[in-house]
């Protein structure tokens, strides 16, 4: 039971990390809590599902979903967020919630109120580790999760974009004065952040075999708890926090039962840790340094 809880917790943590990574990168560079990112997740799930139904190719579904969400993210930063930067944190937060509410209704009106199945079979075997079972979908989530996390780490530490992200996230004005094209950096981060949301959406859809208009509700709250717990704008902190929440949730259920709603568990963990460490698990804007 320990082993299977551990595996379940890590898989759940990987999903949480994928969901929270995009908003973390965006927070790092713009200092806004981008709830609309979760609308990108649902958009990705629906797009992926429709493409999968047409082509029966999971790869095509993922790619088109990423493109669709990335385009959505680009438009959001260009026409919504950038014009209202410097208005304090609450205005973009509420504007993002406006997008989130409106998009849920768009999904309902376009795709109908009923949940849709995502009947993709993953070309991966079910693996038995000790007494525990890892399903093909769980394996896919782990592989994609690790690939994305390593890719993100590499991009931030070793590429020019990563350097620019770090420079901009530490001090937008100075970076801009030193000739960094902050507009381009912001746009790129949104493209990446929303493509990640699409991946999360497709994986959620396949894992739970369901896609529905309000599928973003729970990820939205969870994502907020995780990025704050991780230290706000710190990708490594986010991954740690995601794993922590995933494991705590799984172990609490396995050993104590459903003692409290999962959302309450996540936020109680958050509040307790913040009272001890008001800056989150890891201080912001540092990635593995």
């Amino acid at each position: 039971m320990v082993l299977s809880s551990l595996i379940n917790g890590i898989v759940l943590g990987s999903l949480y990390a994928l969901i929270a990574l995009g908003p973390t990168l965006i927070y790092g560079i713009l200092r806004i809590l981008d709830i609309a990112n979760v609308a990108g997740l649902t958009l990705g799930a629906y797009t992926g599902l429709k493409v999968f139904e047409a082509t029966h190719s999971l790869l095509a579904a993922l790619v088109v979903a990423m493109l669709a969400s990335a385009a959505f993210g680009y438009l959001l930063q260009r026409f919504l967020y950038r014009p209202i930067l410097g208005r304090g944190p609450l205005i973009p937060l509420i504007a993002g919630i406006g997008v989130f509410i409106a998009m849920e209704e768009v999904f309902r009106l376009v795709f109908g109120p009923y949940p849709l199945d995502f009947p993709a079979t993953v070309p991966l075997p079910t693996v038995h580790v000790g007494g525990a079972v890892v399903t093909g979908v769980q394996l896919l989530i782990l592989i994609v999760g690790i690939a994305v996390l390593v890719g993100t780490w590499y991009s931030l530490r070793r590429t020019r974009l990563g350097l620019l992200w770090r420079a901009t996230s530490q001090d937008t004005e100075t970076a801009s004065a030193m000739g960094v094209n902050t507009g381009l950096v912001i746009a790129t981060i949104f493209l990446i952040g929303y493509a990640l949301a699409a991946i999360s959406g497709v994986l959620l859809g396949i894992n739970y075999n369901t896609v529905y208009p309000t599928m973003g509700d729970i990820p939205a709250y969870k994502m907020l708890a995780i990025i704050v717990l991780g230290g706000l704008g710190n990708p490594l902190g986010t991954i740690l926090a995601a794993m922590l929440i995933g494991l705590v949730e799984t172990f609490v259920v396995a050993y104590l039962g459903f003692v409290l709603p999962r959302d309450a568990i996540a936020f109680i963990v958050l509040i307790v840790i913040l009272l001890v460490r008001p800056q989150g698990l890891l201080p912001g804007e540092s990635f593995g340094s």
Partner: peptide, 23 residues
């Protein structure tokens, strides 16, 4: 609680409070 937390940390803590109170 707010005295210990700066802006965005506080914002999310207040969001969390809703879930705790509902529970």
């Amino acid at each position: 609680i707010s005295l210990r937390l700066r802006e965005d940390f506080l914002a999310i803590t207040t969001i969390g409070l809703n879930f705790v109170i509902v529970a």
